[in-house]
Nucleic acid binder design. Sequence first.
DNA 1: AAAGCCCGTTGACCCAGATCAATCTTGACG
DNA 2: CGTCAAGATTGATCTGGGTCAACGGGCTTT
Lengths: 237, 237
Amino acid sequence: MKGSGVTIEPNGHFCSDCAVRDFAVCSSLDPAELREFEHLGRRVQFSSGETVFSEEDITTSFYNLLEGVMRLYKLLPDGRRQIVGFALPGDFLGMNISGRHNFSADAIGAVTVCQFAKLPFGRFIEDRPHLLRRINELAIRELSQARDHMVLLGRRSADEKIAAFLLCWRERLVSQKGVSDMVPLPMSRQDIADYLGLTIETVSRTFTKLERHGAIDIVHGGINLLDPARVEALAAA
Amino acid sequence: MKGSGVTIEPNGHFCSDCAVRDFAVCSSLDPAELREFEHLGRRVQFSSGETVFSEEDITTSFYNLLEGVMRLYKLLPDGRRQIVGFALPGDFLGMNISGRHNFSADAIGAVTVCQFAKLPFGRFIEDRPHLLRRINELAIRELSQARDHMVLLGRRSADEKIAAFLLCWRERLVSQKGVSDMVPLPMSRQDIADYLGLTIETVSRTFTKLERHGAIDIVHGGINLLDPARVEALAAA
DNA sequence: AAAGCCCGTTGACCCAGATCAATCTTGACG
DNA sequence: CGTCAAGATTGATCTGGGTCAACGGGCTTT
């Protein structure tokens, strides 16, 4: 579902009290810069399932995810899909060198982004090396995650993939909402399958197996980690 | 094989006539900067199979590959290996945010690198945003390649993996030594298998199958692309 | 509340690619 | 030139996970 999103009236939205202020790209900006920066972005909302941008689209904007979860994916011509990542609040999307996006991005549930037009954003960076350094830092971190994911896709069994996914997803949620054994899974089984290079049936079966072994409890919208140690042992790394 | 490499006497080595001058990180530097930069790096040689740096090692240096090919890989505790990339001359290695390398790097055949101590290099970048921009550009390009590779690992068949690998490898060699239907493969079958998430037997069988179909010709140290169109069709993307 | 749909689960079966096991090729070295 | 070791190929067999198919449970719609 292609969506252009809904721009929110800017009343009352200031970078200085933005929820992702401290861990997004903008954490590198001082208060004065932040006031200038404020005029570059506009808040836009997307509803569940809407596509924020598509692979091969000419890049006209960058996005800072403020609220919600997004799936980032690539499609093969015959429809096979590989999800290359899930984005959480604070993630910065859209950087590329070809001038075109190299993956598509959909909202999973309602999403709010801070959208920056490419050119003014590029100009703003120009003489702010600390912002560039911050962007570089995020790119390098993503690269490291991408390599970990290659190991998972190329060399791990279905059981290991699922276990590693649960732990890694929980870990990422920690920085958002603190530690908890309840792990919300807003994405569908199909999304998880396409992320792990499996089929939906294998994902379902593996969850059931983990539940039968008492390692997790499948609840609506997520799972409970009953035995984190056992899941860690399964993830084996 | 862990190796510390052999430093080459600096006589007669100048950045200005470096082979990778135009496409490595240093392409962003002007002649004056280049002269200063020259003192930061030292040329080091590694012989076939030597390890230049290992995953989890504390990062003390960055590397600019000048000559040869390297395999970049991660190991699971039980020895399973995933090659996350092959490095060619001009590639810049070692960036990370944790202070530790996040993959290992071996020489495939003899290799020459330009090695930079981390701290002086970091200081040199400090007030040279154009160099930082160049590094960022390289990171973003690698990220895009990493995502393509995830699709390959997660969603493609063995035949497609091999075909895509041959075409992609040939494409990369174009910028090094021009177009040719002779594709040198300096890495072993095991390396190819670990890059594609397959076993050595499947790689061997798939090569043989391609040869029987007249698409390629297996020669010592590489293959001849007899029917590029057919291989492209197999790669299906 | 009945109908329909979407999503997830479960079972039966199958196959691409892994595993196991020779055998062959090539190059290094006495 | 013969010996050895390392890599590559090939064949036989097995299996993890894919495919196909049925079913169920929780929504929305009317």
